[in-house]
Structure formats: C-alpha cells, structure tokens
Nucleic acid binder design. Structure first.
Lengths: 130, 130
DNA sequence: CGCAATATTGACGTTTACGTTAGCGTAATG
DNA sequence: CATTACGCTAACGTAAACGTCAATATTGCG
C-alpha cells in the first residue's frame, strides 16, 4: 500500500534515487516536501513532481529547464502576464519535445538499419564457419 | 560548395560548436580527423560521426555511451566475438531509444493537456476582463 | 536502557563536458 | 614586413549534478 506521506527513505526505494539527490532537488526548488520537525515528508504531489523531474532528465533537460516546466503543472493564482509567459514557455518546450521525438524516430530507423547490416554479417560468417 | 576536407573552423561554423569541443571529442576518441602537419582535416566520415554525436547528446546520452554507439557504425574487420558484443550493445541501445520515444510521446500528450488547461484559463480571464 | 537504523545539516570532493588563457607556429594580406 | 587570422598544445578554471564524510538528532527494538 502506497500511503500518502512518504519518508525520504521510502522515496529513495520507490524512485531509485539517493537522499542526497532529493535534498539537492529541494535546494534547487524542484521539490518542497512538508516537514515533521526536521524530517521531510513527501506527498502525492511531490511524487508526481519527482516523476516529471526524472522523466525530464532522461530527455537531456537541465534541472533549471525542468524547474520551469514544473511551473506549468502548478498553475495557481498567477498574474495574467505571468500566465501568458508560462504558456509561451510551455509551447516552446512542447515544440522542442516534438522535434526531439521526430529526430529520435529517425535515429531509431538508422540504428535498426545498421543492426540489420551487422546481422547480415553475422549470418554470413556463421555460414562460412559452418 | 561543401568540399570533402574541412578545417576545424569550417566544422565549427557548420555544426555550431567550438574548436575546443571538437578537440575534446577527439581526445575522447569520438573523432579522429586526418592531419595536414599539425592541422586537423575533417572528412565526410568525421562529419557523419559528429552528427551522430550531437544527436546523441540531445537525447541525454553521455559521450561514453555515444562512443560505444559509434562503434556500431564502424563495423570493420572485427572478431566474431567482438561483432556479437557490438550487436548486443546495439540491441540494448535500440530498446532504450524506443522506450524513450514512447515515454516522450506520453510526455508530449501530458504537456499538451496542461497547455489546454492554461489556455482555458487565459480565455476565461479574457472574458472577465472584456 | 543501549544500540542499530534512519534522519538531519554542512562542507568538501568528484565527474562530465567543456571554457578560458597562455604561449607558440604558420599563412595570407595590406 | 608587420599585423591579423587561424591553428596548435598544455594547463588551469568552471558549472551542473550529485557523492561522500562528519557530526548530530530521533526512533524503534530486544
């Protein structure tokens, strides 16, 4: 049962990160867990954010870029001007992500082709050896 | 006219990187340009490799991972054992790239949804303001 | 109660991927 | 022929993203 509040240790086990990593993310204001005295307690919201952080990292976004992206998922009582800026930022990120996916699709096709060549080579040599 | 041999300066202009970057990649054995005396000369092959390097970076692969990937594109007179290893490495990379693309597709859908919410908010406030 | 497990803050260390500066050689240009 | 442009190596510097270690609570268990 995944309860609502998790200790730092539970978070580490769940997401395969170290305590240092979570504290570091907090220092960079990517996370803001509650406190029980001095101990951190992570909520469902924190876990959602961490998922987004780790996902962003896998795509090569810097923590600072990820921090900005996270703002998008935290649209509260922002000023109109700020909301427009947030929106523009989101659009730019979206465009970049789509471009990356297209490129990734190409890269996948390339690699598959290369692997086909390697496999042909392997089959050849097997025949010779056989 | 893109000639066959390019100086480091031409490479930098073409790929928007610094000389330091190209020398660094060479030191890490990702590139191995020819020499005219002490001066580097980059061939078509070097340019193809650099494209792959820059592409890999955009997907968050480390230079070391990219170096291994590049071996795939350089299948020469390898030993049978080495060829099999190369192939396995390629398969793993391919699987990871496919997984990343799927995740990226999800992330894109997520972000689009969020942007829709933001846009709805913007429209609302505009109506109120109007 | 004692002790291991888990947590904290701080501070310094490490790796990756280059940036920057220094000091030198070569080449073309006004 | 001096200067400007371009290139080289070597070496030190740096930002990002943590790792590691020390010193100190707190908490649960036998």
């Amino acid at each position: 049962m995944t309860h609502d509040l998790m200790t730092i240790g539970e978070m580490c086990a769940t997401f395969d990160v170290t305590p240092r990593t979570l504290r570091f993310y907090e220092s960079r204001e990517l996370l803001a867990p509650m406190r029980d005295g001095s101990k951190r307690l992570f909520t469902r919201r924190d876990r959602a954010r961490l998922k987004l952080i780790l996902r962003g990292k896998r795509f090569g976004f810097s923590l600072e870029e990820i921090r900005q992206l996270l703002e998008l998922y935290e649209v509260g009582d922002q000023q109109m001007t700020q909301l427009v800026k947030t929106h523009e930022l989101g659009i730019r990120h979206l465009d970049e992500m789509v471009a990356r996916r297209d490129e990734l699709t190409l890269a996948i096709a390339d690699l598959r082709e290369q692997l086909d060549l390697v496999e042909a080579l392997l089959t050849d040599r097997q025949k010779v050896a056989g």
